[in-house]
């Protein structure tokens, strides 16, 4: 579904991604790990269409379409979802109203009729149960005054409501305690299926205890320098990123 080839991107004059290659198929879970500053979040931003990043080379195909040509909202319509590392607080817009607008705009994009109030409520009730999320949270302004855990749970709830084909979780575990990680992971696991894929971006292995990946990639200096299975994540946890850095740096010198 997702084919990234030789992707180069940066911000202003700074090059961050220097040739990423990655293919994701339906039903797969990929983890992208790497030390700070390796380009993990940039990759997520470029895929979702954040404006301030410039793609200088390479291509990204999503179900055969040129993803980089699409506006962020069109990418969402095509079934891409980014769970933000730092979900944005939007004063004066209730979470329910926001999600209803999002669901119906995505449906419109896909040529489906808008859900009426009853249909929307039914869908919301169902997903609320799945995500263990409280009604009172949804009637508050979007993310405003939410705790870190509430914000991340709200991200996963939005994901459940929008039913994406590819979900990108950008450091969803950052700032969460282990209970919150468990709740968020459970949510992700409940919506995993053979038709959709998940790209988990994380610094730590612990999230991968709960969202078990099929593949693990290590990003360093803007490139995927090592790929493997979930065992690679365990090795990283044990040995730290230094051994990867050393391998790369020695390789560069040679």
């Amino acid at each position: 579904m997702l084919k990234i080839q030789n992707l180069h991107a940066g911000i202003e004059e700074k090059k961050i991604l220097k040739g990423i290659n990655l293919e994701v198929k339906p039903g797969e879970v990929h983890a992208i790990m790497g030390p700070n500053g390796s380009g993990k979040s940039t990759l997520a931003s470029v895929l979702a269409g954040r404006e301030n990043f410039e793609v200088t080379d390479g291509s990204v195909e999503f179900y055969g379409k040129d993803l980089l040509e699409l506006a962020p909202e069109e990418r969402a319509g095509e079934g891409l979802f980014l769970a933000f590392q730092y979900p944005v607080e939007i004063p004066g817009l209730t979470t329910t109203n926001f999600i209803k607008t999002a669901v119906n705009e995505v449906r419109k994009y896909r040529g489906q009729d808008a859900l009426d109030a009853v249909g929307f409520l039914k869908l919301m009730k169902e997903k609320m149960g799945l995500m263990n999320i409280d009604q009172s949270l949804l009637s508050r302004p979007l993310n405003e005054g939410f705790s870190g855990g509430e914000k991340k749970r709200n991200e996963i709830f939005q994901m459940a409501m929008l039913e994406p084909r590819l979900a990108i979780l950008d450091e969803t575990d950052s700032g969460l305690d282990i209970d919150a990680i468990r709740i968020v992971s459970n949510g992700v696991n409940k919506i995993r299926g053979k038709d959709n894929a998940v790209l988990v971006i994380t610094h730590y292995q612990r999230l991968l205890d709960y969202i078990v990946p099929d593949f693990v990639h290590v990003l360093y200096k803007g490139r995927i320098v090592k790929s493997g299975t979930k065992e690679l994540a365990l090795e990283l946890e044990e040995r730290g990123y230094d051994f990867i850095k050393n391998e790369v740096n020695i390789g560069e010198e040679a």
Partner: peptide, 22 residues
């Protein structure tokens, strides 16, 4: 960008943000 990333077109996103502001 947050609203757009959820499928809300730029113009509507702007309108929602400004309405929220007021």
């Amino acid at each position: 960008f947050y609203l757009q990333s959820r499928g809300i077109p730029a113009k509507l996103a702007q309108s929602l943000l400004l309405h929220g502001f007021t």
